[in-house]
Write a protein that binds this DNA or RNA. Structure first.
Lengths: 157, 157
DNA sequence: CTTATAGTTGACCAAAACAGTTGGTTATTG
DNA sequence: CAATAACCAACTGTTTTGGTCAACTATAAG
């Protein structure tokens, strides 16, 4: 499994979208400002997220991105998968041809691990993250830092 | 967490050592032949494994590498750690300075994931792997392919 | 003592992935 | 039409990956 800043950026951006997307589309410029991620890099990531139908886009002034479905129906694993396009730990990509057409010594081990990681990240939805206290705290700090107008108040939730 | 071929190679090589190391040291050339891993790459990996005290080396003719301790006391997580030297998924390395000196939105998520992966790989020892039926089968196939003289017969275990 | 073996070290290299930039174009709203 | 913001493609610099090569040192067998 590949876990680099790429996947982290994608999940962070999607979480930002979840936190601020309750009133219409959110522009990448806003996300870029709040999360310190390069705008053009975000564009690349969101192209993949859109292709994987995790977000929808609205063009023109006032446009931006929206989550394609409910907070509770988008899982971290899907986001990481979307930007990385290869999320398995086996090396042969599950084809069992690791060593000259046959499985290698540790093939099953990596299969198990893949299942483990994927299972873990598949259980965490954006809704789960939004509910977390630490996420709310960090989000509040960020909104205070940037002059924010469209904040979702979550502390009562 | 970084999980690349590097860690896979290391675990595979260590498992090979576990399977063939019952009678004296095993040369890297042997491992290279059986596991299809470049000899010079193995040298690099074993330098790190040795620095992390997972193996000991014997120089001179008939020399090679031995496991530094019992099969049951070497865990996959330690091997991956040894060659990757940074096994965490956070990006800030656990220092919580992901975003301008503060934790980023998804910091806790990556901490949890790190714990998850590490916990999983920390429970699997070389002894566990050696006991697995698939490992024994693959090993037998490899020994048949290469003209092998020092095979440990494990099928009775 | 010589010699072959095998570990040890470090320099070097090509390809890929990552992170980001530049410079556009299209579509939409006012 | 002008401003906005998504969309797109090409390109750049850096790091990691996976690997080679050459030189050197320690050791054991003969």
């Amino acid at each position: 499994m590949r876990l680099t800043t790429k996947g982290r950026y994608a999940v962070t951006a999607m979480l930002d979208l979840a936190l601020h997307g309750n009133e219409g589309p959110v522009s990448l410029a806003d996300i870029s400002g709040r999360q310190d991620i390069s705008l053009s890099y975000l564009e690349q990531l969101f192209a993949k997220l859109r292709r994987n139908e995790l977000v929808t886009s609205v063009r023109g002034p006032g446009g931006g991105y929206c989550l394609s479905r409910d907070l509770g129906d988008i899982y971290v694993a899907q986001i990481v998968d979307a930007v990385n396009e290869a999320v398995d730990a086996t090396g042969c990509g599950g084809t069992s041809t690791c060593q000259q057409g046959e499985v290698c010594l540790t093939h099953h081990l990596w299969c198990d691990l893949s299942d483990q990681i994927h299972g873990f990240l598949s259980q965490i939805s954006l809704a789960n993250l939004v509910e977390r206290r630490e996420v709310q705290q960090v989000s509040a700090r960020q909104d205070a830092r940037v002059g924010d107008t469209t904040t979702l108040v979550l502390s009562q939730a």
